[in-house]
């Protein structure tokens, strides 16, 4: 028994050792870069866009935008990535663009939903106390909507980790490369190593952001699970 277990581990180390020491690190770094870059840009575009769309002048259109965003979220990730291939061609930039667009949706949606959910009476009270519109926004609306916006960012980041595995298909690199190589060559160890790492990365991302969320929001408002 002990021999088989020892064998197993030595086999395991023999097979997976080189994969994890040589193949994974550059791909993992690439993957993380993709995710951070895409999510960062998505936040920089999505949050201001959401704020913009909830201002009085545009507020009546925000429901339409939400409907559009919801429809956009129904588009499969592979379809979205693929559709950019004929337009932008192959490479890192097209991959980032596709990821940004896909990652935008939950951020815009939650920013709008979070700001819309702020009680009108609270805003009215703030205005009644003599706040300017931008003071109402930054001192009242934004802090109250923050938990919801943060939840949107979390969803976006986790989705992007997943969608980024597909970036490999259009030459964007990342852990997907190892997985797809494994599938086409049928090398289970490649598939498992790539898939496992991607899964762990996504889970770490989710847990990390949940932790950040709890610290920042100080458990003031219960969110979803």
């Amino acid at each position: 028994m002990s021999i088989t277990i020892a064998n197993f581990f030595s086999n395991f180390a023999e097979i997976y050792g080189p994969i994890f020491s040589e193949r994974i690190p550059p791909l993992l770094i690439q993957h993380i870069q993709l995710v951070f870059l895409a999510t960062g840009i998505a936040i920089l575009i999505g949050v201001p866009l959401g704020i913009f769309l909830t201002r009085p002048a545009l507020r009546k259109h925000s429901q339409k935008v939400l409907n559009f965003v919801n429809i956009g979220q129904a588009v499969p990730g592979l379809a979205l990535i693929a559709i950019f291939l004929p337009i932008l061609g192959i490479g890192y930039i097209p991959a980032v663009v596709a990821l940004v667009i896909y990652g935008l949706l939950p951020i815009v949606r939650n920013t709008i939903a979070g700001l819309e959910a702020v009680d009108d009476k609270v805003k009215e009270a703030a205005r009644g106390m003599g706040m300017y519109n931008n003071q109402v926004l930054w001192q009242i609306e934004f802090p109250l909507a923050f938990p919801v916006i943060m939840a949107g960012i979390k969803t976006s980041a986790v989705i992007t980790v997943g969608t980024a595995t597909l970036a490999a298909l259009i030459g964007g690199g990342g852990l997907g490369r190892l997985i797809f190589t494994g599938i086409s060559l049928f090398r289970p160890e490649f598939i498992l190593a790539g898939s496992g790492t991607a899964a762990v990365l996504a889970i770490i991302m989710e847990k990390g952001l949940s932790f950040f969320e709890r610290v920042v929001v100080k458990e003031r408002m219960p969110l979803d699970f």
Partner: peptide, 12 residues
């Protein structure tokens, strides 16, 4: 959280 291609890969 698990990327879908990763879950397919693992199941495979």
């Amino acid at each position: 959280c698990i990327p879908s291609i990763a879950l397919y890969g693992i199941l495979l």
